[in-house]
Design a protein around this nucleic acid. Structure first.
Length: 319
DNA sequence: GAAGTCGGACCGTCAAGAGC
DNA sequence: CTCTTGACGGTCCGACTTCA
């Protein structure tokens, strides 16, 4: 799959976004996985809300303003009532804004257009490559721009056939309107009936389910997914995973979505036996262009203890 | 311990300028 | 006309000081 400049994913075959649902309907363990993931999402959202920026009143009273203390909309406000200052509790005067202040051009956007990155395109040639090709050090602490690194290297080259578990690709793209860099990755397969099934689930169980698929694995191309679709899947970490790099983001990695295996399916059992615990996944932080921190958790790093060395990650984030 | 002080981080607003 | 930017005026957090 590829991403065009309008943030659409280009893919073939079944064009219904529903075909990209991350769970296998026959997987009896899906509920457990979903429950765990849902809990984590809920916790994450709760934390985000709790950390949300403070609310300010439109106009603090003269007493609170003078004291630099929190005010409220009531007159008298709670603080003045508490301190017995009700008689003097009134809105503070506000100055009128200056007019005629020169505004600069859109500096950020101008700079972006000037240094516009080249978007990579996956071709049939790529899909025909017989083996996965590992892409080393997609991100690094080098001085190179994260953009150029990712645009050149952020797709994977899947097996042409025989594998029963092949990713379509992983990719990244930039929202040109605000220069936000996104990552998106997922897996898609076609079976002999040319119907598409997918899994982006971190659940190792669903990986095993997909081992039953046989026949040629065909890359999914020429279907267009809207940004809304991507955002829908982004709400679940087991679907698409667009990741904002706007300020500082946490890029969560999941076993079956960011590591692409070259080994035959029997070896997947090894990885499949690992517990699903997203908190155990490596954590990467980025500050706009550069990764600023790498916090693998000792003894819990998925890459360290749950993937046999013969597995060959197609791409991963390393420091 | 409560109230006062205040530096500065953070917030919301909105006019200028860009884009369509 | 709408959208984006970023300057600006404002709020109030949090550390510290003063007071009773």
């Amino acid at each position: 799959m590829q991403f065009n400049k309008n943030n659409s994913i280009i893919a073939t075959g079944n064009t219904s976004p529903a075909s990209w649902m991350p769970f296998n309907e026959n997987n009896t363990n899906n509920d457990d996985v979903l429950a765990e993931v849902s809990t984590l999402i809920a916790t994450s959202k709760k934390n985000a809300i709790e950390k949300s920026k403070r609310k300010q009143v439109k106009n603090a009273c003269v007493n609170c303003q003078k004291a630099c203390k929190k005010c409220d909309d009531g007159r008298p406000c709670k603080r003045c009532v508490k301190l017995g200052l009700t008689a003097t509790c009134r809105d503070s005067d506000r100055k009128e804004r200056k007019k005629g202040v020169k505004r600069g051009p859109y500096k950020k956007r101008q700079a972006y257009i000037k240094d516009k990155p080249v978007y990579p395109k996956l071709t049939e040639e790529h899909w025909a490559t017989p083996i996965f090709e590992p892409v080393p050090q997609v991100l690094s602490h080098s001085n190179q721009s994260i953009y150029s690194d990712l645009y050149e290297d952020s797709y994977c080259v899947p097996s042409q056939s025989t594998s029963s578990l092949s990713p379509t690709s992983s990719s990244s793209f930039v929202d040109e309107s605000d220069e936000t860099l996104y990552y998106a990755y997922g897996y898609g397969y076609t079976n002999n009936n040319n119907t598409i099934t997918t899994t982006s689930s971190p659940s190792a169980t669903s990986m095993l389910d997909h081992q039953t698929i046989s026949g040629n694995v065909t890359p999914i191309q020429d279907a267009s997914y809207s940004w809304d679709d991507i955002e829908t899947y982004a709400s679940s970490p087991i679907g698409w995973n667009p990741v904002l790099s706007d300020t500082i983001i946490q890029l969560q990695q999941y076993p079956s979505t960011n590591v692409i295996y070259q080994q035959p399916q029997k070896d997947l059992n090894v990885a499949a036996q690992q517990p699903l615990n997203m908190l155990n996944q490596p954590t990467y932080w980025f500050n706009n262009d550069m990764p600023i921190e790498y916090q693998p958790q000792p003894q819990q790093n998925y890459f360290e203890y749950s993937i046999p060395s013969q597995y060959n990650p197609c791409w991963s984030y390393t420091n």
